[in-house]
């Protein structure tokens, strides 16, 4: 149960139940769907990039497990107002956090609330759930229509 509490932290359960920035986004400049064929998780990320290259608005919708929903919700809060290069760097750090070795202390500098996903390291089968929204966001910003986790 300890590993479970570590994985399903209160923040994650809360964002699963009440996802932030959920729903359609009017005036989106970028949009992509993320699909995890293994478990059927499916979500769409829409965002608006301003003249200075900052993501000043983004929202998501779709269906998925608690990890993928909470990850999408917390990601939208985390990256709002950031430049694309900053978001890429965040994704890299986030990816390291969820795929790192469980025997070493998790490194979550600069990730803020996203640190709650450190527990995913104990459940390698769930890494794709945690990173789905990020893959979709990156696809959207790169002008692709779809991101698949495999």
């Amino acid at each position: 149960m300890d590993d479970l509490r570590e994985l399903y932290q209160a923040t994650i359960l809360d964002h699963n139940k009440k996802p932030r920035n959920y729903g359609p986004l009017e005036d989106a400049t970028h949009e992509a769907a993320g699909h995890n064929p293994l478990c059927g998780d499916q979500l769409t990320i829409r965002c608006h990039v301003d003249a200075e290259g900052r993501v000043d608005a983004l929202r998501f919708e779709g269906q998925g497990c608690a990890i993928s929903r909470a990850s999408a919700s917390l990601m939208t809060e985390h990256v709002k107002g950031k430049r694309i290069e900053e978001i890429d760097a965040d994704f890299e750090r986030f990816h390291e956090l969820v795929t790192g070795s469980p025997s070493e202390p998790p490194r979550s500098e600069g990730l803020g609330k996203l640190a709650v996903f450190a527990g995913v390291r104990e459940f390698p089968m769930r890494v794709k759930c945690a990173t789905l929204a990020w893959h979709a966001l990156r696809a959207a910003l790169e002008g692709r229509e779809e991101a698949k986790t495999e």
Partner: peptide, 9 residues
């Protein structure tokens, strides 16, 4: 709970 979460728990 989503089936995937059920499976993990």
């Amino acid at each position: 709970a989503h089936p995937h979460d059920v499976g993990t728990i």
